[in-house]
Simulated assay, not measured.
Amino acid sequence: MTWPVLVLGVALGTGGALVLAWAGARRATLEARIAPYLRTTLADDVRRRDQTITPVPAVERLLAPVVRDLGRVMSRWGAPSADVSRRLRRSGSTLSVEQFRAQQVVWGAVGLGVGVAVALMLTATRGAPVLATAVFALVLTAAGVLVRDAALTRSVTLRQRRLVTELPTIAELLALSVAAGESAPAALERVSRTTSGDLSREIGLALADARSGERLPSALTRMARDAGVPALERFAEGIATAIERGTPLANVLRAQAQDARSHGRQSLVEEGGRREIAMMVPVVFLILPVTVVFTKFLRG
């Protein structure tokens, strides 16, 4: 297969895909039909879509419909939108689900570009089969999408670890404030204002929900449930129970802090056990064979 035929085939396939995408985008959905009659929803949608996140806003607005359609395809065949929204909330990200899908599309496009470049180089230099190079490009495209999803999962795990690490200190500060005579909302307000970290921001969001009319125990419980940290859920449930039943909050907070520190020590022991097993891999497969080889040569 010569170069002109290959380029012509790629151009023809791209043109056909663009025509099909254009034909599908022309169909008016139910949301688009009723959007002009919902003034608030339409204004919010226009304001949200007008926000740009790339250094080239003009190109981003031109490609936004295509990226949005590809994001819908990913939500249909990939992780559900509810799962993505929950993980974005737990990672502390301000991105919406649509923006995350757009980033997945961009990462997939980068993988496709790298795959096409490598495929053309292999075809030109080594005469690689076109089918194999096409499969390689598609694999890199899927890898780009999956890497962005894995990065989100990694950020969720790291943030949950930070929440567990910050919990004992926050509990002790709350216990000191309550023991000094402050009420639970005032103690939470003082700690969230004088400290920094992910848990302080979560407490600040819960207090904002409480100021907007929600009950403080339910706001704390929902905050812990959204964070997905069992230790934080026990902490929020203990505070909620103490507030509702009138039990001494300082003793509850000290017990919660001790429980959080015990859980942290247990996590460190478990992590040390996993690292110890992981250290056996280089010992068995690298250090031990080299030692055996040196012993054999020294004896010889």
Rank of each mutant, 00 (worst) to 15 (best):
V5T: 05
G9V: 04
G15I: 02
G16E: 09
L38E: 13
T40Q: 12
A43P: 02
R49Y: 13
D50F: 06
P55Q: 11
A58N: 00
E60R: 09
L63F: 14
V73F: 10
S81E: 02
R86L: 04
L88A: 09
Q99M: 07
A102H: 05
V106D: 02
G108V: 01
A117I: 05
A117T: 14
L120K: 01
T125A: 11
G127Q: 01
A128N: 08
P129L: 11
P129K: 04
G144S: 08
G144N: 03
V147Q: 06
R148Y: 11
R148E: 15
L152E: 02
T157H: 14
Q160K: 03
L163F: 15
L167A: 00
T169D: 10
E172D: 14
L173M: 11
L174K: 06
A175E: 15
G181V: 08
S183T: 13
G197W: 05
S200N: 02
R201T: 00
L205K: 09
P217E: 00
S218R: 08
A219W: 01
M223A: 11
R225W: 07
A231R: 00
L232H: 00
E233D: 11
F235H: 03
A236E: 01
E244Y: 12
R245F: 13
A250I: 05
A250Y: 14
A250L: 10
N251K: 13
L253K: 10
R254S: 08
Q266I: 11
S267T: 09
E271N: 00
A278C: 04
V283I: 15
L288G: 05
L288K: 05
V290C: 14
V292M: 12
F294L: 15
